[in-house]
């Protein structure tokens, strides 16, 4: 059973010595959780590398249907959002919570821009008959002027939709979490001594961005 007490102006659960002890423990927990996220995506990366080595031409053909410019814009958007996320933590550390609020909402907005661009990318593909795996429609693609070269092209889009979809899901979760801490921040629940949730969500957001940094070249540029 944990009851809180106030140590150096911070609520500290009774099983921790002081606020620093609590902070260090929370941060280790968050990093461990990030390890599991990276490992989970790691499974997808291994699958990607395996099939890419088996069917390089098919992967090249698949990648040619993606618009690298949109992917690039999205990469920039996410990198910028990582900056604003870091600023959100920084402004709280130096005691300027209203600036932090702005930085956090900007981060959410960047996430939204990313998702809107992804939405257009996805719908455009559906429109052309590009679906994952067995649902890939060569007839519909031919109607749009694309003759499918490799019979198993659907596999590439299986990877494309799984990888970018799982990543997109994480972006949505991240946006939800950042909104949550932005609202908490507007209620002034954080201060220079206590900002663990912002930092935790920040670490999550950076990892989500980092995964995209790997997904972008693998999906859009390779081949």
């Amino acid at each position: 059973m944990s009851t809180n007490r106030l140590v150096n102006g911070v609520q500290v659960a009774s099983h921790y010595r002081d606020e620093k002890h609590q902070y260090a423990s929370n941060k280790e927990g968050i990093w461990l959780f990030m390890v599991t996220e990276i490992l989970m995506f790691g499974g997808l990366f291994v699958g990607y590398i395996l099939f890419h080595s088996l069917y390089p031409e098919m992967f090249a053909e698949g990648a040619s249907f993606l618009d690298w410019k949109l992917g690039f814009v999205n990469t920039l958007v996410l990198i910028f959002s990582s900056l604003t996320m870091a600023l959100g933590i920084y402004f709280n550390q130096v005691g300027q919570p209203s600036k932090a609020t702005w930085a956090l909402w900007t981060t959410v907005a960047c996430g939204a821009i990313f998702m809107i661009i992804k939405y257009f990318e996805y719908t455009h593909k559906f429109h052309m008959g590009i679906f994952p795996g067995k649902f890939l429609d060569p007839v519909m693609m031919a109607e749009h002027g694309h003759t499918v070269q490799n019979a198993n092209l659907g596999l590439y889009f299986g990877f494309y939709f799984c990888m970018s979809g799982l990543h997109g899901l994480h972006v949505l979760i991240g946006m939800g979490l950042i909104s949550w801490i932005a609202i908490k921040n507007m209620k002034r629940e954080f201060n220079p001594k206590y900002f663990t949730p912002i930092e935790g969500v920040g670490i999550f957001w950076h990892i989500v961005d980092l995964i995209w940094i790997f997904l972008f070249p693998l999906l859009y540029l390779v081949g």
Partner: peptide
């Protein structure tokens, strides 16, 4: 994913 969207990663018919 394989069951709902037939992504093909584990399906030899689709190259998986």
């Amino acid at each position: 994913m394989e069951r709902t969207f037939g992504v093909g990663i584990f399906d030899p018919k689709l190259g998986g």
